[in-house]
Design a protein around this nucleic acid. Structure first.
Lengths: 340, 340
DNA sequence: TTGTAAGCGTTATCAT
DNA sequence: ATGATAACGCTTACAA
């Protein structure tokens, strides 16, 4: 059915090496021959067989992207599609393909990882928002499979790209302080994740910079869900903050509902800032002031870096420096904060 | 580095055929030998080389999923992640991998298609929400690559899985009629897409079934975007409908904003029904009555059918019947409709 | 500049 | 039950 190098060679009256050279744009082939071969390729509708090529070159031009199911579950959040969009864009540019893997946090997760990561198809892997303790990173290091983490990672050897969570949180709290707030509370993300930690860190840094003592009763831990925003706000009530920085929009909306229930007005009684800038943020009443992150650029950048790491891993065996890239975030001012 | 069949064979003192048999669970191998080989496999940490295997078997266990960029752009809509979630779940169950492709509607789109579809890596393809006129379907038919369409397709030979758009629209309009409405308008989806057509068809069928004449001034075409909902509603205003069926939640929200601007109350002055049940639908004021579709099941089902089509394409060369599956939709009643 | 031939790591057919 | 051996379609020294 499908024609092979051999067929084309016969058609053009040359050897298959020559055809291979033409296909791969090798310089050393007479232009007359080249034309003849090109013609034959056209006539036969030849398409190189990627699998065979991979076997010979030991390169597939496929990268994997693994995303823990948990992230996918936040369907209010376009994080996932935006990330993929950026990643595919970069892949298209470099003639790479993207293999997708979502994992349910189940017992056989570990086995799945292995199955996916060492399936022999992958030139490299993009690991998105893995929890800090996730076994996938050590596993990849052990296998010497080129990979990059989307999200900061403490390990010295791990390449990563991330958005500036600390800076974003800083901007948010900074903004509240500029509005005159001093009793600023925060509902944090899960503190076993990097974004959770970083957004809290930004909060702390800003208070410190302005010599506002960080009171522990103004800090409650959430887990990025709406419900954790609700209960977080409930627990915060007794500390009567004048402003709340929620580490995610979804939690901010939870907090908003709690505030409404107890008859407090946003922004008049309590100012509210979120993080992420999900679509709902602009729809909710009042529209939410929040921190926007360039997710698609994150996916794009991560892929670009991964591909360069893959190239490097072929060229020089020596250790290349670890790539660590932080993309800027942006404060989006809407209606959920007023000055004190 | 990585060990091969050959290595294992040497370790176990057998030929590589035997090792291959053990790996593939062939029956004809003495259990003693089998154990010895198993041991050797363990010791060497052998992992079969998927690419080599594919070359030999002409099967990759990879399926592609192509999604036009347009769909991805609707980031308010978790269609895309939900579909992928269903698809990956099915893939995981059957030891298949999923290769992703998003396309910008650009000039080189056609070329990209080819690059992705005939790259030789794919055992089959899942085509999601391609526009009716999209060249990808004819292209796949020509190449004899097994594929399934997510979304109804008129071609006799095309396997598809879809949600019941007609039935969903019927339920919505039926509900409005039961509430006593007679002047029911609709803002349709783009009429060059199947969901656009089908949701309009459901609207028409229901009116007819209840002998309510379908007035053309009560029908305006939208394109699923919020803005088209806004302007659609504006044009509808002069026809003063008592109820509006918008073919998507996002358009319904656009319509809602228009109604608010002209001082009409939902549901008191105008009842409003959407379609999709996106997250925003339950957040908006008033919460939107809408039609829910089982997107993740859609992705799951489509994958299951595709895999069976792939199997069939190997077994019998004869034409198998075309698979056509419609998954039920569900009316979600919230606060945006009241009786007339 | 072009051709020959040896891999790449499997599977599968055929003897034994 | 096991072992040679020929594919699978391509790349890539090495020869010519």
């Amino acid at each position: 059915m499908a024609s092979t190098l051999e067929d084309v060679a016969r058609l053009a009256g040359v050897s298959r090496s020559t055809v291979s050279r033409v296909v791969n744009d090798h310089p050393n082939v007479r232009s007359e021959t080249r034309d003849r071969v090109r013609q034959a390729i056209c006539n036969s509708g030849y398409q190189p067989h990627a699998v065979a090529r991979s076997l010979a070159t030991n390169r597939t031009h496929i990268i994997g992207i693994v995303i823990p199911e948990a992230v996918t579950t936040l369907f209010d959040d376009p994080f996932f599609p935006l990330l993929l969009r950026g990643a595919t864009e970069a892949c298209n540019m470099h003639d790479y393909h993207l293999m997708l893997s979502l994992f349910a946090a189940s017992a056989d997760q570990q086995e799945m990882y292995q199955h996916f990561l060492r399936n022999g198809y992958l030139d490299g892997v993009l690991v998105a928002s893995a929890p800090l303790k996730d076994p996938v990173v050590p596993s990849l290091l052990r296998d010497h499979l080129p990979f990059i983490s989307v999200g900061r990672h403490p390990d010295e050897q791990v390449h990563y790209v991330d958005v500036d969570n600390i800076g974003g949180a800083r901007m948010a709290v900074e903004y509240l302080i500029r509005l005159g707030h001093r009793r600023i509370a925060t509902i944090t993300g899960p503190l076993d994740t990097m974004p959770g930690q970083d957004r809290l860190e930004g909060y702390r840094q800003t208070l410190e910079a302005h010599r506002v003592p960080a009171k522990e009763e103004l800090i409650v831990e959430g887990d990025f869900t709406e419900n954790s925003g609700r209960v977080g706000m409930q627990r915060l009530l007794s500390a009567s903050p004048s402003a709340v920085f929620a580490a995610s929009d979804v939690m901010a909306i939870g907090a908003l509902k709690t505030l409404r229930e107890v008859g407090l007005q946003v922004p008049q009684d309590v100012a509210l800032v979120g993080f992420d800038d999900v679509p709902i943020a602009s729809v909710v009443e009042p529209a939410l002031t929040t921190v926007r992150q360039p997710i698609d650029r994150l996916g794009w950048m991560a892929t670009e870096v991964l591909l360069s790491v893959i190239e490097d891993s072929l060229e020089l065996e020596g250790e290349t420096p670890t790539h660590r890239i932080i993309l800027p975030t942006e404060l989006v001012v809407r209606a959920s904060c007023s000055s004190v």
